[in-house]
Design a protein around this nucleic acid. Structure first.
Lengths: 221, 221
DNA sequence: CGGTCATATGACTGGGTGGTCACATGCCGA
DNA sequence: TCGGCATGTGACCACCCAGTCATATGACCG
């Protein structure tokens, strides 16, 4: 985790560092990513990084367990109670897509936990993040069951995995496909991203949610 | 692609090379994987690799575009015509899980195309493989529509992505979860994998297919 | 002014890599 | 037996990296 020195940094310097670190880790997997490159692009001496973080892993961990989730939570917002479950779920999914489009690098950071790694330290970190995400989704689905929106007989473990992949990576692929670009083009181009406006996002969210709703209730509604 | 020299190699030597290359590339992403390590573990001089392949990428390309698909196709088998669409799809999914359990390293190689990469050469390679896989699944779903098993009004583009993720990565996660292990433990342990017998695979395949069936037909059956 | 402390710096170390190449080995045909 | 050809080999090169550390800078305080 960052040192006090890091927190005391002038805003300009700190955010330059964060921006470039996010760029690096959103484009490269942990072991491919390079501190030297971040140092070059920020024009901050490599030695300085070790005044702010223990090592490369420490910086990475901070970004994907603290910084990215913080930004994402702030962006997505809370579920409003007293709301139809499926309508609210649809909004949730649409917000996720909006985050992907407006903060693609952070969205990518929120998603890297999905790919496995041979390094035990990285693996542990990633799987903890995945588990947390699954647990959150699971409790949301449990609410759906409690509200009668989801068939009470579903196998919740299976369901959570399926739903998570559909509204996560699958929908991301769909968005990229819709934009006619691959991930790195989207990371690089603002104009490209703006082409997925709220209307199109809502349409896609509606269909994705209809898919998982059909899958969960399998014609029993 | 491999040279003639490679094809002329004594079987023992060639398969030693293939085995260790598969191990390396199933455990590490392309840039993390190391020819030097493969050379050490096979006790084949590094120079020899360059008699068989142009470079590291050439070996990687051959493995994921030729060798892994060949093995997978042979393992999965063809769809028998004159078969109920959903029953056949279920069998298809079950075979995929069997492949995952019995050849986890090759299964992993068949799946690596999903993760993005900053390197354009790798990216092109991976996205070509993904597209081919999606096209195959899409045409299968088209058969389903033609046979009346799938609602003719589905958005085939969306549907293909969703189904592909559910029966692919999502189901893989479920299997790992079921085995109580992560990917690398499964790669390493035969005993672990045998715990997912045909009966459990069939049960999981049935549920996954029920999920996508419900998602595709959304209560219209 | 002098001194102390927080911070910035980049040359350096040790290690790993992909790829090359001059040379060694050994088979096969004349 | 000899010569040529396919093949095997590992030391070597240029490169990049994570992480260290002696030194420099400069702010603040007595």
């Amino acid at each position: 985790m960052p040192t006090d020195t890091f927190h005391r940094l002038p805003d300009a310097r700190r955010s330059r560092l964060v921006d470039e670190a996010v760029r690096e880790f959103s484009e490269h997997a942990f072991h491919e990513a390079s501190l030297s490159r971040i140092a070059r692009s920020t024009r901050i001496a490599k030695g300085s990084f070790y005044q702010y973080f223990d090592d490369k892993l420490d910086l990475y961990r901070w970004l994907i367990t603290e910084e990215a989730p913080r930004l994402k939570r702030a962006f997505i917002g809370e579920r409003r109670a007293s709301d139809d479950f499926w309508a609210s779920f649809e909004r949730f999914v649409e917000r996720g897509m909006a985050f992907l489009v407006q903060h693609p690098r952070f969205a990518r950071l929120s998603a890297v936990a999905a790919d496995p790694s041979a390094d035990p330290a990285i693996r542990g970190l990633h799987s903890a993040i995945c588990d947390a995400g699954l647990a959150e989704l699971r409790s949301r689905l449990e609410e759906g069951i409690a509200e009668g929106a989801i068939d009470a007989n579903v196998d919740l473990g299976l369901a959570t995995h399926f739903v998570s992949h559909v509204i996560g990576p699958a929908l991301t692929d769909v968005v990229l496909n819709e934009l006619g670009a691959d991930l790195h083009e989207v990371l690089a181009s603002d104009a490209l991203r703006r082409r997925l406006d709220a209307r199109r996002r809502k349409r896609l969210a509606k269909r994705a949610v209809a898919f998982v709703r059909g899958g969960l209730n399998q014609g029993k509604e």
